[in-house]
């Protein structure tokens, strides 16, 4: 599935909720099904800076696609990184790099997008894209 199609799917899912509680409960659920980073990678090198909670992200390359795993010590943050990984994992580096992130607004998480927000959603997106950039450079070299 293309990144854009996955993003649309996520937006559709979130559009079913009438209130914030359902939205956050769903995010918490998504956090629980997050592809977990293996413990050996839960190190400071894999920490994303700028978050009030800890977020670790790891990337691997499988069959030309970037596979992300992550974890956080906060449940809502797990949900947020879970949503991002669902959209960007198992994709080609070039596709990740060119992907838009507008869908975040559409699922009512816009308030988390401000760069000064303590959860560091912006830092998370940047980190995923940095991994993609590194793998893209590897492919081209």
């Amino acid at each position: 599935m293309q990144i854009e199609a996955i993003q649309e799917e996520i937006v559709d899912e979130f559009s079913m909720f009438d209130d914030w509680m359902q939205r956050y409960e769903y995010m918490i659920e998504l956090g629980k099904s997050l592809p977990k980073i293996s413990d050996e990678f839960k190190t400071d090198d894999h920490l994303i800076k700028g978050c009030q909670s800890k977020v670790w992200v790891h990337a691997d390359m499988e069959d030309g696609k970037v596979v992300f795993t992550a974890d956080s010590d906060a449940i809502i943050t797990k949900g947020i990184i879970g949503i991002l990984i669902r959209a960007f994992s198992n994709q080609k580096p070039a596709d990740i790099l060119s992907a838009k992130t507008d869908f975040i607004d559409e699922i009512g998480l816009k308030e988390h997008l401000s760069p000064t927000r303590a959860n560091g959603l912006v830092s998370m997106i940047k980190q995923l894209k940095l991994y993609a950039l590194a793998y893209q450079a590897k492919i081209e070299s």
Binding site: Y24, S53, A74, I75, I76, T77, A118
Partner: peptide, 9 residues
């Protein structure tokens, strides 16, 4: 429970 989760809700 992480304090950030409580504060967000």
């Amino acid at each position: 429970i992480h304090p950030y989760d409580v504060g967000t809700l």
